[in-house]
Design a binder for these strands. Structure first.
Lengths: 177, 177
DNA sequence: TCAAATAGCACTAATCTAGTGCGCTTTGCC
DNA sequence: GGCAAAGCGCACTAGATTAGTGCTATTTGA
């Protein structure tokens, strides 16, 4: 449906939160260990589901986990190196845009590849979308969502000039268990 | 899942086919009346489903229908005026990217909009994707899929420079009934 | 009058997504 | 040592979305 899943939304919220926390903390992100509880109490995200998402992000190497009583998650890279493409890719696989070539690719073969008149062109579109997400860093997400942090940094540097319209992000509507 | 639906794929294939047919025909697209049968015999698309899709495109005003024995569909606008955004919009609604603001918007309210740290930034991304699709015309899809038509026209004019990677389009795998 | 085509509507089956349950392991702290 | 908090892993349920089909009516050219 050309829409991100809730999981991805939750993951993004969590990562933005973590980046923010790390940003306001002195030192090498020492206090930036964020627990699932902390996030799910701040945003109305089902705790268990958020835990699953962060686990996935951990498996993907985007965050690092610390077990135990005071455990939690920390960003594995700086918000400047973490891109939207990496996050989306980790949580819902490489974007396929079309059904062919959807992360398994094998058993489908979609029979008539040679006849398909939209493979190559749509391929280019997907690439464009992907490229857009690759150039969007976690930091750039941070900046635009937290105007109280810094006045307004080089958004034009990290984001293509075209991207200046009006979308809406989402937020869950369930309450933590 | 950040992926187009089969319906949209089918619609695109149909439109590309129609544009191609109209293009090779002399005169004001007189012979460019294309029937569902013709398309479903050329590509392995379930006929009935394709019919539904074309009907939707007709309702959206992107194609015009002619009933009766020699009936079929014709493009309502020139391939230069028909954009990917219009097509996708017609077949799966305006892209929302996030769950909030999904074409109904009302009953959700998603509770915590004020707290949501990703609304505005994701909004920008969606806009970028949308913009990309608005600048992609049916003609540009045609050109890249049918190299036998014209050598290679100004793809750079209709498509952002960044868009030059490698995606895959899809094609159905079912046979017409 | 027939045959081919669209129009409309409803329905089924499969897939995907959101969210939950439960028990285990790790670890800081008293 | 033991408790409590946190992550880990797996499996499961319910709802939503999607793909695809059935059937009948209407239009219209030959």
């Amino acid at each position: 449906m050309l829409q991100l899943t809730k999981r991805t939304e939750y993951g993004l919220i969590a990562l933005v939160h973590m980046a923010d926390r790390a940003g306001r903390t002195r030192g090498p992100a020492r206090d930036a260990v964020v627990s699932v509880r902390e996030i799910s109490e701040r945003y109305p995200i089902p705790r268990r589901l958020l835990a699953e998402v962060l686990k996935d992000l951990s498996h993907a190497g985007l965050v690092e986990s610390q077990r135990g009583a005071t455990g939690g998650y920390t960003l594995a890279r700086s918000p400047d190196e973490l891109t939207l493409a990496q996050i989306v890719g980790a949580l819902e696989g490489s974007p396929a845009l079309t059904s062919c070539e959807s992360h398994d690719g094998a058993h489908d073969t979609c029979g008539v590849v040679p006849v398909c008149p939209i493979r190559s062109p749509l391929s280019r579109i997907r690439a464009g979308i992907w490229s857009l997400m690759e150039r969007t860093t976690l930091r750039s997400l941070l900046q635009s969502s937290l105007p109280h942090t810094s006045p307004s940094i080089d958004l034009n540097g990290t984001m293509p000039a075209d991207v200046t319209l009006a979308l809406r992000g989402a937020v869950p509507h369930t309450s933590p268990s």
